[in-house]
Every structure is written in C-alpha cells, then in structure tokens.
C-alpha cells in the first residue's frame, strides 16, 4: 500500500517511515503541510497519516482539501486531544484519530485495517 506521512518532527517521521516500510508499504514522507498537499496531488497515496500542527498547512486543512476530491483514508496523528478538535476532524471526514503519545504498534494495527479494506475494494 502507498502511504503518505506528513509530520514535522524529523525523528518521528523517519521512525514511522522505517516501521511502515518494514511492513512492506511504500512510504512517501513530507515535513510540512504544503509539501504533503503537493505530494498527495502527484502520487495519490492509498492512505494518509498526518499530524495537525505543522508548518504551512495544518493536518485539518489537508484533510479538508483531500476530502473535496477523494475518499482516501486519513488518519490524524496529533498531540491535540481536545474534544472540539477531534470533532472538527471527524466532521471534515477523517477516518481515524490517534492522540500522542501513541503506541506505534497500535498504529500499525490500525493501518493494517485500512489495508484490508483497501484490498477488498
């Protein structure tokens, strides 16, 4: 599966990339919102994992922009856990919301779920 990760913390980004590649996914990384939007446009990934607080465009903006065009699954991975932010995210049409600190193993399991859904489709 082709997965795009948008995350401004470099260590976090590399870590996720490393782990997802180990799981056999093709991984596209982007360090800010703008880069993410550009890469989504050109590579059309099967799954998007994005942080909220990033330079240039927030994860919520990315979610909004993606949803206008496609139903690519989106997982938000963010330190923001306030109710109104989570609700806003789901209102925008994200598929899953994980709050930091998070367990990478849990993330992997959740990603697999989308992979199966993807395979069925």
């Amino acid at each position: 599966m082709k997965i795009l990760i948008a995350e401004d913390d470099l260590l976090m980004l590399k870590t996720l990339e490393y782990r997802l590649k180990k799981d056999g996914h093709e991984v596209i990384v982007s360090r800010d919102g703008m880069e993410a939007l550009e890469k989504i446009e050109e590579a059309s990934p099967d799954l998007i994992i994005t942080d909220i607080m990033m330079p240039y465009s927030s994860g919520l903006e990315i979610a909004g922009a993606v949803r206008q065009k496609s139903s690519t699954p989106i997982i938000i991975l963010s330190g923001m856990g306030q109710e109104n932010v989570v609700l806003e995210a789901f209102k925008l049409g994200v598929d899953d919301y994980i709050t930091k600190p998070f367990s990478p193993n849990e993330l992997i399991v959740r990603v697999r779920r989308f992979m199966f859904a993807n395979a069925v489709r």
Binding site: M53, G79, M80, Q82, E83
Partner: peptide, 8 residues
Amino acid sequence: YRILASSD
C-alpha cells in the same frame, strides 16, 4: 507549545 496548543 504543544501542551499549550492542546489545552482547553
């Protein structure tokens, strides 16, 4: 600042 950002 993330704590700040995620505070209500």
